[in-house]
Structures are given as structure tokens and as C-alpha cells.
Simulated scan of single mutants.
Amino acid sequence: MADGSALTLAALGGTGLSVLGLAGTMGVGLVFLQAALAKLRHRDLLAGVISNYRLLPSAMVAPAAVLLAPAELVIAIGLLLGGQALAAAASILLLAVFAAAMGINIARGRREIDCGCGRSQLRQPLSWLLVARNLLLAALLVPRLLPNPAPAMADLVVALAGGLAIFVIVQLFNAIGALAASPLATQRR
């Protein structure tokens, strides 16, 4: 850039959005993979987590608990294998549903329930930050809904690094949020 201004996604045009969308699919795909595997490992707890939200009729809790982890796993695989528009759309929808469920419970004054975000050993109470996290992850996938040119090898490398960074940031966000809400942290206050 001749005037010395920073390189932005707008300056990159479609390629920048394509790389951002691909990085988002990699990162969100890894988030969904980790969440699905955690839910499968602790499937006996999932119905209780879903029930705590008090959004589904009792008869729907068990089927939702049975279907959620496999759905997340299928979405994760779809995202990680190229992030086709269908996988991106399903992921955006699921993230929006999770954000809405959290938002409804926060509005009801029910912040103390566990979000069920994946790692049972790092329980997190509901917060607007978790809602924002889910909406931000969904927004990262929007470019995958648009027509995307075939990425160059350099774009794939950048997208992979970006996706790994997104995954690590989400994991750190979750760990810090859970630790901040832990009994040890509340004793220090």
C-alpha cells in the first residue's frame, strides 16, 4: 500500500473473506469436534445439562441428548473437510440456538446453570460473554456461505494457522471463564 496504511480484509477483497471464512471453518470445526467428543465421553450428564435450560418439554430432553453429540460430530467433520456451505449453515444455526438458549436463561435470571460447552471439568455459568462468543463464532462462518474461489496453497496454510488460533483462543476463553467462576476464585474475592 503506497500510503502506508494497514492491510485490511476490505483491501484483500474476496480472497481475504475467503481465507477468513476458511480459518473460521477450521477453528469452529475443531471447537465442535472437541465439544462432541466431550459430550460423547460424558453422555450420562448431557440430559441433565439440557434439562437445566428448561426450554424443551421433558419428553424431548432424552432425544436431544442422544442426537446433539452426533450432530456436532457430523458438523465438525463437514467443516474440517472443507467447510461446505451446508456444514457452515448448520453450524451457524446450532451456534445461534445455543446463544438463544443461553440468552433466554440469562434473561430469566438463571445464570448459575452450566453452559454445557463441552469440558465437564471446566463448568461455566451462563454469561453474555458466552452468548457473544457463540455469535462471533457463527459470524466467522458467514463467508463460507458465499461463493468462494478455490484457495491457493498459501491461503490454505494461513487459514489452517488462523483456524488453530481460533480454536486455542476459544479453549483459553472457556478455561479462564470456568476458572473465574470456580469456588477457589470466589473465595479470593
Rank of each mutant, 00 (worst) to 15 (best):
L93H: 02
V97L: 07
I176T: 05
E112Q: 14
A2P: 07
G116A: 09
L160D: 01
L141M: 10
E112A: 15
G24C: 04
L45T: 07
N148F: 01
L126E: 00
L45Y: 00
H42C: 11
L46C: 01
V142G: 05
L135R: 06
P183R: 12
A35V: 09
D114F: 04
A180E: 08
A87S: 15
L17I: 07
G29S: 08
F98G: 01
A69D: 13
A10F: 08
G16N: 04
A11G: 12
V49L: 14
V28N: 09
R54W: 02
N52F: 04
L40T: 09
E72Q: 15
A2L: 10
V19L: 12
L94W: 06
R111Q: 12
G103N: 02
A62F: 10
A100H: 00
S91C: 14
A175Y: 06
C117W: 10
A100G: 01
L33D: 05
A23E: 04
V74W: 13
P149M: 11
R111T: 13
D114S: 07
R133A: 04
A88F: 05
L81W: 00
R54M: 09
F173Q: 04
G82E: 01
K39M: 12
L30K: 00
R189A: 14
A69W: 11
P183K: 10
R111W: 03
I113F: 08
D44N: 13
G118W: 12
L179N: 13
G177C: 11
R188E: 12
G83Y: 02
S127A: 14
L56C: 07
G83V: 03
A178Q: 03
L86E: 04
V74G: 11
G162L: 08
L81M: 11
L122D: 06
V142F: 06
A138D: 03
R43K: 09
I176A: 14
A71L: 15
V170L: 01
L37M: 13
A10M: 06
G163Q: 03
R133F: 05
L95E: 04
N134A: 00
S58F: 00
Q124V: 00
A165W: 13
A87P: 07
N174E: 12
G82I: 01
I106C: 04
P143M: 11
A85N: 00
L68Q: 05
A107W: 08
Q171A: 13
P147K: 03
A36H: 00
A178I: 02
A38N: 10
M153L: 15
R43Q: 13
A23W: 09
L95S: 03
G16M: 05
L136I: 15
A87H: 03
A71E: 05
A100E: 03
L80T: 12
A71D: 04
T186D: 04
I176W: 12
L126G: 02
L20N: 08
L55G: 15
A11C: 08
Q124Y: 00
L129D: 13
G21D: 09
G118I: 10
L94K: 01
C115G: 13
P143D: 10
I77D: 03
G83H: 02
L7A: 05
P57N: 11
